[in-house]
Simulated scan of single mutants.
Amino acid sequence: MNILTGKTRHSPWIRPLDEIRDLLCLEWAHYKRDLPHDDCPSQDMCLLSTTYLYWLFKHAGLKGWEPAEGVGMDDQGESNPGGMKAVNDRWYSHNWLVHTSGVILDLTGDQFGHEEIILATKDDPRYNANRSSEYAKQRVSSCRLGKEWLKFQLEDPDSSKLLSSILRSLGPGHGQDLSCP
């Protein structure tokens, strides 16, 4: 169930997440600068973005967020319902964060035809983490580029100033108080 509708669209999380996504868009564009242009900036950026967000939240003291991963196709090309279900009803491999309260946070859902920023309940039928949480954590831990994006932004005066503002607006208490209506 997508909760970015109606009054929840005005949640204190929406503006900071929009700003975080704007920062990620800069990294995506730089990363893809030598690749053919695609219509969706977040295409194939879910692991890097989830890694960035995971370490950003750890840096900010936001507790309870863990990576999740699903694989849409197995090695033989057989359908395996995991990852994210796109608007075309097909499952694709995907990475996102899940909070201990049961909230999903995804900043790259638009690559599958959904909203750019998704805050949803854990039972949202578009998501299926068919990889273990240990596996998802290992993937995020080994994803150096997502961590490097964050490190660069924390060291860059302009990005750091914006990140400081974003982190102040989220504050450590927001991670524990996040709930779905």
Rank of each mutant, 00 (worst) to 15 (best):
Asn130Val: 05
Met84Glu: 06
Leu145Asp: 06
Pro16Thr: 03
Arg126Ser: 09
Cys180Asn: 10
Pro41Cys: 01
Glu66Gly: 08
Arg15Ala: 15
Ile166Trp: 06
Ser49Ala: 10
Glu19Lys: 11
Leu26Ala: 13
Met1Leu: 09
Val87Leu: 11
Thr51Trp: 06
Ser133Pro: 01
Pro36Val: 07
Lys151Gln: 14
Arg144Trp: 12
Phe57Cys: 05
Arg126Pro: 02
Trp91Asp: 05
Ser133Arg: 12
Asp158Ile: 13
His37Cys: 04
Glu19Leu: 14
Leu163Phe: 04
Asn130Ser: 02
Tyr92His: 14
Val87Asp: 05
Leu35Ile: 00
Arg168Ile: 07
Ser169Met: 08
His94Ile: 03
Asn2Lys: 05
Ser42Trp: 03
Asn2His: 05
Ser165Asn: 09
Met84Gly: 01
Ser11Arg: 05
Leu163Trp: 05
Pro36Tyr: 07
Leu170Val: 00
Leu26Val: 14
Glu27Pro: 09
Asp74Lys: 06
Ser142Trp: 08
Arg9Asp: 09
Lys161Arg: 15
Leu145Phe: 10
Glu134Gly: 03
Tyr92Gln: 10
Ser164Thr: 10
Arg139Glu: 13
Gly102Ala: 03
Tyr54Ser: 10
Gly109Glu: 00
Pro157Gly: 02
Ala136Gly: 02
Leu48Pro: 06
Pro157Leu: 04
Glu66Trp: 08
Pro81Ser: 05
Ser49Phe: 07
Arg21Ile: 01
Val71Asn: 07
Ala29Arg: 15
Gln111Met: 01
Lys161Ser: 14
Lys151Thr: 15
Ser179Phe: 12
His10Ser: 11
Lys63Thr: 13
Leu170Ile: 04
Thr108Asp: 01
Gln43Trp: 07
Ile3Trp: 11
Met73His: 09
Val98Gln: 11
Leu62Asp: 03
Gly146Arg: 06
Arg15His: 13
His37Thr: 10
Phe112Gln: 07
Thr50Asp: 03
Gly77Met: 04
Leu162Met: 11
Glu66Ala: 09
Gln76Pro: 00
Ser160Thr: 00
Ile117Lys: 06
Leu4Pro: 02
Asp110Arg: 07
Asp18Lys: 15
Pro181Ala: 09
Tyr54Phe: 14
Asp22Leu: 12
Gly82Trp: 08
Phe152Asp: 10
